[in-house]
Design a protein around this nucleic acid. Sequence first.
DNA 1: ATTTGCGCACGGC
DNA 2: GCCGTGCGCAAAT
Length: 427
Amino acid sequence: MSESKYREWILDTIDSLRSRKARPDLERICRMVRRRHGSEPDRTCAELEKLIQEQTVLKVNYKGSISYRNAAKVQRRSRKKDDVALTTAARRSAVEEASHSDLSNGDSAFGPVDQDEEDLEADTSMAMDTDSNADEEGADESRDGQDRPSPARTYEDAAMNCASARAVSAPCSPSGNRPGPGPSPSPGPGCSPGSGLDCVSFQKAAERPSSLPPSSPRALAHNDWAYHSAVCPAERQHPGMQRDKAAATKPAIQSVTTSPGTLKNNVKKEDGGKAEDSGLSSDQLVPDYAAGLDETKNVSDGRPQTLSLLSDNCTFKNKIDISPFTAAEDSLLNGGKGDEVSVKTEKMSQNLLQWTVADVASYFSAAGFPEQAVAFRTQEIDGKSLLLMQRSDVLTGLSIRLGPALKIYERHVKVLQRTHFLEYEDL
DNA sequence: ATTTGCGCACGGC
DNA sequence: GCCGTGCGCAAAT
């Protein structure tokens, strides 16, 4: 509960800051949430990170500083207002979403960003590297656990604390050179969000020529947050998407093979024809943890262009291959191959039953349905519930637009259910 | 002192 | 030219 409450508060705050033309950075967000709802900055910070992981909120580097975006709005932008049709329909979903945030206006947000300046290094470092390996949620959730000694701190402190704490633990830098400022004091305006997680990559990333040598730090450093950022966050922990790791192992199957039709189509259509990259602009994604993972590198390196197109994966927002098939396939294919991989895969598929509400939401969000993911969350659909869902539940029970609902049901829910039952019943 | 409003420049389409 | 973004400063609280 508090979770959704925070989601609402944070998204609201971000929207509010945006409308006020103020940069929605960590500091402002924490402050506003505190002022409006009395929430502790730490807590806000932690919740924000969770949202980032779920991709409800996107952390981006814009003009050299960290900014946060309401993912729902961002995405929407891709289709712009042109789609009248959608708009109309969207409205409905908007309503539900509205509950958490007011996206009432269709504007979206996310614009262009550029992070090229070299000075970024400083900023960059904080933004990007801090990535915390993120050890995933553990870290985040634990945030509560990490009690900090100082009783009274300022927002910044708080923010920093959370951020830095995590950052410290995971100093990853893209190229190995760690950002000096990692845990250091305050990086500046937004406290170093090293927080880490986030990243989502967008168009640019996609467009980027695969040629880029990921290995070269510099290269990444500047243009590429996005590129690097390719590592998507979400999957790190998502049940559905462990593919990252898997990717490293078996790239080919993964991205390429994956059912291209599945998500991609969805995405495309949804985007209004913009097609793949269009999803969002990329500019900015903060790659936080992207940098850190080795796998990432492998992935990108290993894959040739094709991949870059599809993948860059993290992109999964737009194109990712999150299709359930893949997941299933992976597990089947892998059988008992790599330990980690197999384990993970296994876990994932088998654990549809164990997916939490957040897992489900993340899955759909990553599959290109962030708005609808909210509905799943709102309805508290976890793995078990998902298995029990019927077509009508998806089409009408979630109050989401029919188009996406159909796609979600046919391409994901149904497939996940089928896969699950096939595997489990047979075995 | 803090919050809010917003003109304006910037950069990406 | 349009649009999203956010700095920087003034006004409001």
